[in-house]
Nucleic acid binder design. Structure first.
Lengths: 215, 215
DNA sequence: TAGATTGTTAATCGATTAACAATC
DNA sequence: TAGATTGTTAATCGATTAACAATC
């Protein structure tokens, strides 16, 4: 189904489409045109049609798009009914927040383990999953074969454990650390969340909109 | 100093430059050429020079860039020595993780309050700051005039409190909720962190690299 | 000075928008 | 059928890369 070389610009918009279509479904809306959707989302109708046509086009001339069907197609493209074995590294506030609030299962992931180097946390339950000491990582992976790791260790401490994880068969990283995994492992799937970069961007926006140095 | 209309593509790269330059400083490197930096960061030298020239250019022909000076310039552009009064809305795991781990002060922000609607959390200390019940928000803002709010309330519950915050003088949002603040308040600075979108993007990457449907 | 490397202009590439024929 | 709206091609816009003259 999926064509080669879909650009990242398009892919990055898909989750947002998925989200809006879900809202429409909740409102009982079954049909929508690219023009109506563009108004709701703040995009152009052209872009919406172009985006969907990367994957073959799911609409009908004169009618528009069926909301539920379109949402299902996007779900398929993203692979949201996958069940990728996933572990979280780091059970601090961030790791626990991610474990607690993210609907992993609705997004193609299956959270099966949480690890921390702090012995004191071992045994604590987070969302029904026990925190394990990091020393048990090797055994756990050999037994359960997770394919995705969520790196919730702030700072630059990631590198050694990162190599360990790759050797244990991890194929994808959701990376909250500053470690540049993609550079060292170009063959892996890496999605970075650089919270501090995002915060600095907000700082810039505040300055450029409300700062004194603005002419 | 700052020119008008610097494109967001450029701005989004600045925090990463800032981070890398900090690492170089730690290593005692005082001078670097666009070519060396490009190799380290995985960009082209052209792009680096173009980026810095949006702000006037900080290098010297035949020499390159002074690492410390360049870093300072980027800090100025981003406004990292600002001191924007900041409050966090939501003291769950996410709010506490953000409060604990983000170096707000190093990035132009001054965290002065944390609020939650859960009475049970009121009084608890997070990073030396007491969690306050949300009912005290009005009084607190009128007294302390925060200008930035960090929305750590998962889901779609943001809208009402969002309007309240705007009325209380909040000018910028670091938004972890799915609420589309920017659409309703185009005049404000809004930086969204859509964690679930990011996770879905990883799901796509896993599929397109390792999925069975790949030809 | 000679070598190196920037600042800056010009060329290329990719993404977005506009237009319209196809078709439901 | 007539009206609506897609799928798709062509035009525009913006961002990245290449090239090179300026200059330290």
């Amino acid at each position: 189904m999926a064509k080669y070389n879909i650009s990242m610009s398009v892919i990055k918009r898909l989750p947002r489409y998925y989200r809006f279509l879900g809202l429409l479904l909740d409102q009982g809306i079954t049909r929508i045109s690219s023009r109506e959707l563009s108004a709701k989302m703040g995009l152009t109708a052209s872009q919406i049609r172009q985006d969907f046509n990367c994957f073959g086009g799911f609409g009908q001339q004169g009618y528009g798009y069926n909301v539920e069907q379109l949402r299902n197609e996007i779900s398929k493209i993203l692979g949201l009914s996958n069940n990728l074995g996933t572990i979280i590294i780091g059970a601090g506030n961030l790791g626990r927040a991610i474990a607690t609030h993210m609907s992993f299962e609705e997004r193609g992931f299956n959270l099966i383990g949480i690890f921390d180097k702090n012995e004191a946390l071992a045994g604590e339950m987070v969302r029904g999953i026990p925190v394990r000491h990091i020393d048990g990582l090797d055994d756990f992976c050999r037994e359960n074969h997770p394919s995705v790791a969520v790196l919730c260790i702030p700072g630059e401490h990631g590198t050694p454990i990162e190599n360990q994880l790759v050797e244990l068969g991890i194929k994808g990283f959701w990376n909250f650390s500053h470690s540049d995994i993609a550079a060292r492992h170009p063959d892996l799937a890496v999605e970075n969340v650089h919270l501090s970069d995002s915060l600095m961007t907000l700082c810039y926006q505040m300055n450029s909109r409300f700062g004194k140095n603005d002419r």
